[in-house]
C-alpha cells in the first residue's frame, strides 16, 4: 500500500529529473561540450547523493509547515503538486515544484484544520524571492572574476576549452548534489512522517528510514534524467537561452551555490558558530535560481537584453502555483476521504 501511495511522490521526482537536470547540464549538453551520457550519469549519481545525505534540512522546514500524518494525505498533497505543475506547464507558465508542494501542504492544513505556521510560511516565501536575488549577485561577481581570469593568466583558447569542460562537469556535479539536497523535500518531504522505513545498518554505516526514503526519491529523479531530460537539455542549449559554455559555467556555479546555501545543515551550523547570518533551509526553485544567475550575467554586461517581463511571469508563478495546488489538494483530499474512504489526517 505504501508504495502505491508513494507513486505520486515518485512521479514528482521523475518530473523534477526530467525538467531540472537541464538547469544544470542544459548548456553543457546543448553546446556539445559534455556528452549527454556523461552528464546523465554524473547528474544522477550526485542528485542521489545530495538527496540521501543532505536532504534532511529542507524537509524539516516543510515538515514545520505541515506535518502530514496519513499516507493517503501525503499521496494527495504530492499528487496535487504534480497536477498543478502539469496545468501550469500546459498553460506555458513558469512553475516550480517548490511552490506547488507548499500550496499542496497548505491545502492539507486547511482541510485537516491544522493551523499553518505563519513564520515558517514567511520564511519559505521570502526564500523564493531571496534565492534568485542571491543568484543574481553571485553570478555577477563570479562572471566578473571569470572574465578577468583567462586574460590575467593568458590561458590558451584550446586549454580554456579543456578547463571549461572539466569545470562544467565538476560544477554540474556540485549543482546536481545541491539540487538533490534542496529539492528532495519537494518530492519526498510529505512522506517523511508516514514512511514505514526503519534504520538499517550496513557494514557499520547506519542508514536512517528518512535516508532510505530520500534515496528512493533520488532514484526517481535519476530515472527522470535518463528517460526524458535529453530533450529538455537540447532545447535549453539550442533554442531558449543561448549561453556560451563559459557563461553556463558561471550560471550553474552561482545557481548551485544558492541551492547549497539553502539546504546545507552543516553550513548553517558553521555560520551559527561564526556568528554569521544564516539562511533558512528551504526548497527553492532551481529554474528560478538559474534565471536569476542569467540576469546577473546580463547585468555584468551592462543590463542590455534583459527581458524584464520574464521577472513578472516568475512573480505570477509565486502566487498562482501555490493557490492552484492548494485548491486541488483541498478538493482531492475531500474525495479521498469521502469517496475512497481513506483517512487523510489523524483526527
Amino acid at each position: 500500500m505504501f508504495f502505491l501511495f508513494l507513486t505520486s511522490g515518485l512521479f514528482l521526482g521523475w518530473s523534477l529529473g526530467a525538467n531540472d537536470a537541464s538547469n544544470i547540464f542544459g548548456t553543457a549538453v546543448g553546446t556539445r561540450m559534455v556528452k549527454f551520457r556523461t552528464a546523465a550519469i554524473i547528474a544522477s549519481l550526485f542528485v542521489i547523493m545530495g538527496a540521501t545525505f543532505s536532504g534532511a534540512g529542507t524537509s524539516n522546514t516543510l515538515g514545520k509547515l505541515g506535518s502530514i500524518d496519513q499516507l493517503a494525505g501525503a499521496f494527495i498533497v504530492a499528487l496535487a503538486a504534480a497536477v498543478s505543475i502539469l496545468i501550469m506547464t500546459r498553460s506555458g507558465l513558469p512553475v516550480s515544484t517548490s511552490q506547488a508542494i507548499v500550496g499542496g501542504i497548505i491545502g492539507w492544513n486547511i482541510y485537516s484544520g491544522t493551523p499553518t505556521d505563519i513564520s515558517t510560511l514567511t520564511k519559505i516565501v521570502s526564500s523564493w524571492i531571496s534565492g534568485p536575488l542571491l543568484a543574481v549577485g553571485f553570478a555577477f561577481l563570479i562572471y566578473k572574476l571569470f572574465l578577468a581570469l583567462p586574460r590575467f593568466l593568458q590561458i590558451h583558447l584550446f586549454r580554456l576549452d579543456a578547463y571549461t569542460r572539466l569545470g562544467l562537469i565538476t560544477v554540474g556535479a556540485f549543482g546536481a548534489y545541491s539540487l538533490g539536497a534542496n529539492n528532495i523535500a519537494n518530492v519526498m518531504g510529505v512522506f517523511v512522517s508516514v514512511s514505514p522505513f526503519h534504520a538499517v545498518t550496513v557494514m557499520g554505516i547506519t542508514i536512517s528510514g528518512t535516508e532510505q526514503l530520500f534515496f528512493l526519491g533520488g532514484l526517481s529523479i535519476a530515472v527522470g534524467i535518463f528517460t526524458y531530460s535529453q530533450k529538455v537539455m537540447m532545447t535549453v542549449g539550442e533554442d531558449v537561452l543561448k549561453l556560451t559554455p563559459q557563461a553556463a559555467l558561471v550560471v550553474v556555479l552561482a545557481g548551485a551555490l544558492v541551492l547549497f546555501l539553502f539546504s546545507s545543515e552543516s553550513l548553517e551550523q558553521w555560520l551559527i558558530v561564526h556568528n554569521l547570518p544564516t539562511l533558512p533551509l528551504v526548497p527553492i526553485s532551481s529554474s528560478q535560481v538559474i534565471i536569476g544567475a542569467i540576469i546577473g550575467i546580463g547585468i555584468a554586461h551592462g543590463g542590455r537584453g534583459i527581458q524584464y517581463q520574464v521577472l513578472g511571469r516568475i512573480a505570477s508563478g509565486w502566487v498562482l502555483t501555490p493557490i492552484i495546488a492548494m485548491v486541488i489538494s483541498f478538493v482531492a483530499l475531500f474525495f479521498m476521504e469521502n469517496v475512497f474512504k481513506q483517512a487523510v489526517y489523524l483526527p
Binding site: H156, F158, R159, D161, A162, R165, L166
Partner: peptide, 14 residues
C-alpha cells in the same frame, strides 16, 4: 587525457 590532447593541439597550432 583531456589535457594531453589539448597540449598536442596547442603544439600543432604553435
Amino acid at each position: 587525457m583531456l589535457f594531453k590532447k589539448t597540449k598536442m593541439l596547442e603544439r600543432k597550432m604553435d
